[in-house]
């Protein structure tokens, strides 16, 4: 039996996620929960035969919501901090798409299976989802004393939450490069580009390399990871083969012999957002992967 689930938050992220979850074989999406009766997201949910309620998160704890085992939080960090204890008390698993980071960070291609029993997991940021896999790939064949990423998104695809909390993005992403990616030190930079027509999401990953690194092994690992991410984010691709520059470089992780640069473009699947918003697509696609893994796990383990 597919696992019943709901989305909390009927904005852009919640709506895009809805289209992805509706295609799932292991998740049974039943409701989209919002607070605005006029919400376009709720209207679309009802159109697809789901409950589209403006009652807010309280709905989840009423009789109509019986059986919901997984929620996807697509509100804001502040709201998730209010909601998370209530989910935990009700035994509902939370997959958090806000930067609240109450639970462990999960990046599907890196540590999908590590936190299947965690009551709350965090999807970090779009930049974190796009770049951490590359750092982890390089780390799988050599030490990475320092990793740095530059994530550039179209201005139109960055909502007010991101704009008012840009420090949260850079700090959460930096820590993910270390905690999940395996780099010794991490730095994240975020840029908004207002060009018209809007640019596709761009990510550049710099990994410091120690003396004696094997360029072929590093390159193969990166290219294999590109395929692994593209399996669930079809528009994820490198714009060129990895670029190696000989140093030395005086990085925060100590002197590095060389660096490898991975240039990534992410075109969105356009489930709801326009294709330029690859940053939003990669978040909802990753959350879907994590949700499905949790669902399969719940189906295996008797309650």
């Amino acid at each position: 039996m597919p696992v019943p689930c709901a989305i909390v938050g009927s904005g852009n992220i919640g709506t895009d996620l809805m289209y992805k979850l509706l295609r799932s074989d292991v998740l049974d999406l039943r409701a989209v929960v919002g607070i605005d009766p006029e919400s376009e997201g709720l209207r679309r949910a009802r159109e697809h035969g789901l409950v589209g309620t403006p009652e807010g998160v309280d709905w989840l704890f009423g009789d109509d919501a019986d059986g919901i085992a997984v929620v996807f939080e697509a509100t804001s960090a502040w709201v998730h901090r209010q909601n998370a204890p209530r989910y935990a008390e009700a035994g509902i698993r939370a997959i958090d798409l806000t930067p609240a980071k109450l639970g462990p960070a999960v990046v599907p291609t890196v540590n999908l299976d590590e936190h299947l029993d965690a009551p709350n997991v965090n999807m970090i940021t779009c930049g974190g989802q796009a770049t951490t896999p590359i750092v982890a790939a390089v780390r799988s064949v050599t030490d990475v004393p320092y990793a740095e990423i530059v994530s550039t998104v179209a201005s139109k695809s960055a909502g007010p939450g991101t704009r008012q909390n840009i420090d949260e993005f850079t700090k959460t992403t930096s820590s993910c490069l270390v905690e999940v990616g395996g780099a010794d030190h991490g730095k994240a930079i975020m840029i908004l580009n207002p060009a018209e027509p809007p640019i596709l999401m761009r990510n550049t990953v710099f990994c410091a390399l120690p003396e004696g690194y094997d360029a072929d092994a590093v390159s193969d690992a990166i290219l294999a990871m590109e395929k692994a991410v593209a399996a669930y984010v079809p528009g994820y691709h490198l714009t060129s083969p990895p670029v190696f520059d000989e140093g030395p470089f005086a990085t925060p992780g100590g002197p590095a012999a060389a660096r490898v640069i991975t240039l990534i473009e992410v075109e969105g699947a356009a489930d709801y957002f326009p294709p330029y918003a690859g940053n939003l697509d990669i978040m909802t696609a990753a959350a879907t992967q994590v949700g499905e893994a949790v669902a399969r796990h719940l189906m295996e383990v008797p309650a």
Partner: peptide, 18 residues
């Protein structure tokens, strides 16, 4: 031509490679 903005130094590498 690409209308890059301040901070997008990484695009210099992208363009050079292209």
């Amino acid at each position: 031509r690409r209308q890059v903005v301040g901070g997008q130094e990484d695009m210099i590498i992208d363009v050079a490679v292209e």
